[in-house]
Amino acid sequence: MALIEVKNLEKTYADEDIKTQALRGVSFSIESGEFVAIMGPSGSGKSTLLHVLGFLDRETSGTYHFNGRSNADFSPEELALLRNQKLGFVFQSFNLLSRTSVFDNVRLPLMYSEVPEAEWDERTEEAIVSVGLWHRRDHEPSKLSGGEKQRAAIARALIMRPQVIFADEPTGNLDSVSGKQVMKILQELNEKSGHTIILITHETYTAEHAGRIIRLLDGKIDSDELVTKRRTAVEDFIK
């Protein structure tokens, strides 16, 4: 059974009577442990697709099964629980809480979880250490560089040990060195920890870190192929 399975997914936005069709019948499936990049020019519907897959938005028609269960069956409470336990999000603009330390930002998902409070500090430390930010734990986001902010956001996405990590243009606001660091972390999460990663990007270079690339064009799948010569972030460092 596939982790994610979508069939004929369509999404239409109605904004003041002007309808925009962002997705026009998309079908694919993603197995657990895959690293998939979704590519496409802006307006191709890749962000919309990620939002639907991440249960942040609902499709207009078509079906979406997560772990074999249709998303139409989830109650709002269950969706909140699912987002908390199974999914992690990394955004282009970080979305860290200002005036809140790295430690507290990373810990935030635990507050909405059923994890006993006694484990919180240990888990938070583990997540922050894994992205190499332990020395920055007491800093507020305004004191961090872009790359550090994104690493803090990754730690936050990791802390609930989710099945899937959704990364929406995670390197879009970063310089190339920071971007490579972020990709290295994501790749390690996929290879060493077995997280399923769904990455959205418009850069071929970034997408080639994934194992499979789905290209969207005008709300439809243009191509869906495995990456033959996969880039590894570590290699780039050596060069």
């Binding site: 942040l56 987002r83 935030l108 909405y112």
Partner: peptide, 16 residues
Amino acid sequence: TREIGLRKAIGAREKD
């Protein structure tokens, strides 16, 4: 608004 969106994305329920 963004903070609210983020909290919802990481698992906050309406009642939270």
